[in-house]
């Protein structure tokens, strides 16, 4: 199938635009000189991924990505940037000076992964914009066959919650401890 045939279907145009936007934002996430800009480009990359999920008829997961990543995780990141007072202006010290071998490694990974997927899947077609998976199906799967992993993940979240509070809490000095006990 030639590239012209591929462009014949309108859904591939959407893919091309969204894919290029994702690639550009991912590139800026790893190269931006400004920490806040890097975090905001991650929003764009994840938003593009959510649009791809909608194209692949995974509606629920797409909105979970918007809600959890863009809504919660990014706010957490911006808090982290502000609390650690990471240099928010233009800064030269954000990257290591040795960039050649990481670049080579990442290009090698890309070549290997795409070669493997071209070898393995060739021209396998995705059912373009099929019936969306209903939330009912997902809910039944989560509380039926996958109920034990579901509970394990909820336990992981609880452990992360308690662990996060414990790690980030400031230890009281002995004088403060006395003061608290006296009250």
């Amino acid at each position: 199938m030639s590239f012209i045939d591929w462009l014949g279907s309108p859904v591939n145009w959407v893919f091309l635009v969204v894919g290029l936007a994702i690639l550009f934002s991912s590139w800026r996430v790893v190269t931006a000189k400004n920490v806040v800009h890097a975090a905001l480009y991650l929003v764009a990359a994840l938003g593009g991924a959510a649009i791809l999920f909608l194209m692949l008829s995974a509606e629920f997961v797409a909105w979970v990505v918007v809600l959890v990543y863009i809504g919660a995780v990014l706010v957490l990141f911006l808090f982290g940037i502000m609390i650690t007072r990471a240099p928010t202006g233009k800064d030269v010290g954000l990257d290591t000076p040795h960039k050649t071998s990481p670049a080579l490694l990442s290009v090698a990974t890309f070549v290997l992964l795409s070669w493997a997927s071209i070898q393995a899947f060739g021209t396998t077609q995705v059912e373009s914009v099929g019936e969306p998976t209903s939330t009912e199906v997902l809910g039944i799967a989560l509380l039926g066959r996958f109920v034990i992993p579901f509970e394990v993940v909820s336990f992981v979240l609880l452990a992360a919650l308690i662990g996060g509070v414990t790690i980030a809490r400031r230890d009281l000095t002995p004088a403060e401890e006395e003061e608290r006990r006296a009250v």
């Binding site: 991912s26 920490v35 990141f77 650690t84 010290g93 997927s117 071209i118 899947f121 396998t124």
Partner: peptide, 30 residues
């Protein structure tokens, strides 16, 4: 839509992630 177009896009995103992981010095950016 081909399956491979999604896989190759994801591979590119993953490789950029590896690059950022190795090049950045700030923990938040990692």
């Amino acid at each position: 839509m081909l399956l491979n177009q999604f896989l190759i896009l994801a591979a590119a995103m993953f490789s950029l992630g590896i690059y950022g992981l190795l090049v950045r010095r700030n923990i938040v950016l990692i």
